[in-house]
Structures are given as structure tokens and as C-alpha cells.
């Protein structure tokens, strides 16, 4: 065995990279870029339906729960604060802060998702009712699916945090879901503003 091979017996040599951005962060960034395009196509459909309706928006017979959705927005944005708090805590080596922050983030996200599902059952219209119903459920449903994926990532990170997997120097498993979670929250702000408020 050569000297170089012996030096790398335990693990392969570190891969060369041309980007300043860490490969894991770059992967998440590219994924988010594709998600932005996906949401963009749904928003295009939404605005097309809205502009071509030529009537008051939302169309007659559609009362959206603006207040409940506003409270849900506050809950989701709050979960970004707890996520940020969790990561800042582990960067200082505070494991209890990490665990509390991740647990709170998960619970707030779960509350948002359950509230949205409950609101679906009380809306009074379905995806097949008309074009508004279709695009409303598509947009909010697409976002809800992203919240579900984010919750899955958060659950994995939370369980790992209770098993002592993260340190002040090694916390990629929290950093990457954190970026995703903030993106999901930003998309909800866009959805809430355009669909519920304006």
C-alpha cells in the first residue's frame, strides 16, 4: 500500500470543489431554486384565473378565513424565530437551547398544518367547485405539502438533537433544514398576501 493510500485508509480524501459554497448548502439552494419555479408556475395559474375572471375577487360564494389564516401566519413566522434560536444555541454549544428550539419549531409547524387542514373542512367549497376552488387548493395544498416535508426534516433533526448528534462545530443537520424551513415560511407569506389579503 502506498503512503497516500495509507493516509486515506480510514476515509476517502476530501473532494475538490470549485464553489465557495459548501456542497450541501449548494444542493439545498439548487433544490429551493427549482421549488421557486414550481411555485412560480402555480402563481402564474392563479393570476391568470384571477385576471380572466373579470369579477370581484374572490368570486361569489367564497369566503376565506382571513383572520384564522393571519393567526396561522403569525404561528409559522414564529416558528422561524425558534428555528433561528435553535441554531444560534448550538453554535454557542447550548444543547438544551437547540432541543427546545427544534421542539418548539416542530410543534408550531404542526399546529399550522393541522389548523390549515381544519380550515379546509370548513371552507364550504371544494377543488372541483370552480376555477377559484381549484387554484386555491392547489396553491395552499402545495405549500402544505412543503410544510409536511419541512416537518419531516425537523423531526429527524429534533430526534438527532436529543441523541446528542450536534455540536458547536458540526451542525449541518440543523443548518440545512433551517434554510428550507425559512423558505417555506417566505412562500407562505407570499401565498397569504396574494390569496387572502389582496
Amino acid at each position: 500500500m502506498t503512503v497516500q493510500a495509507e493516509a486515506h485508509a480510514a476515509h476517502p480524501p476530501e473532494a475538490h470543489q470549485s464553489s465557495r459554497v459548501d456542497a450541501r448548502t449548494l444542493g439545498m439552494f439548487l433544490f429551493i431554486a427549482s421549488e421557486v419555479m414550481l411555485f412560480g408556475s402555480f402563481f402564474t395559474a392563479y393570476f391568470f384565473v384571477r385576471v380572466s375572471a373579470h369579477t370581484h375577487w374572490p368570486t361569489a360564494g367564497h369566503e376565506l378565513p382571513v383572520f384564522v389564516a393571519g393567526i396561522n401566519t403569525i404561528i409559522l413566522v414564529s416558528s422561524s424565530f425558534t428555528m433561528h434560536w435553535a441554531l444560534q444555541a448550538i453554535k454557542r454549544g447550548n444543547r438544551a437551547g437547540l432541543q427546545a428550539g427544534l421542539t418548539l419549531t416542530f410543534l408550531l409547524g404542526l399546529t399550522f398544518l393541522l389548523t390549515q387542514i381544519r380550515e379546509y373542512s370548513r371552507l364550504g367549497f371544494a377543488p372541483y367547485t370552480d376555477a377559484f376552488g381549484t387554484i386555491f387548493y392547489c396553491l395552499t395544498g402545495l405549500h402544505g405539502a412543503h410544510v409536511f416535508v419541512g416537518l419531516t426534516l425537523l423531526l429527524a433533526a429534533t430526534i438527532r438533537s436529543y441523541r446528542g448528534h450536534y455540536t458547536a462545530d458540526a451542525h449541518w443537520g440543523v443548518e440545512i433544514p433551517g434554510i428550507y424551513w425559512h423558505f417555506v415560511d417566505v412562500m407562505w407569506i407570499v401565498v397569504y398576501t396574494t390569496v387572502y389579503i389582496l
Partner: peptide, 10 residues
């Protein structure tokens, strides 16, 4: 890039 780290995404 506004999403390069968790802090920047926040």
C-alpha cells in the same frame, strides 16, 4: 445569495 446560510435565510 440570500439563502446561503440559515442566518441569511432568516
Amino acid at each position: 445569495n440570500p439563502l446561503r446560510s440559515e442566518a441569511e435565510a432568516f
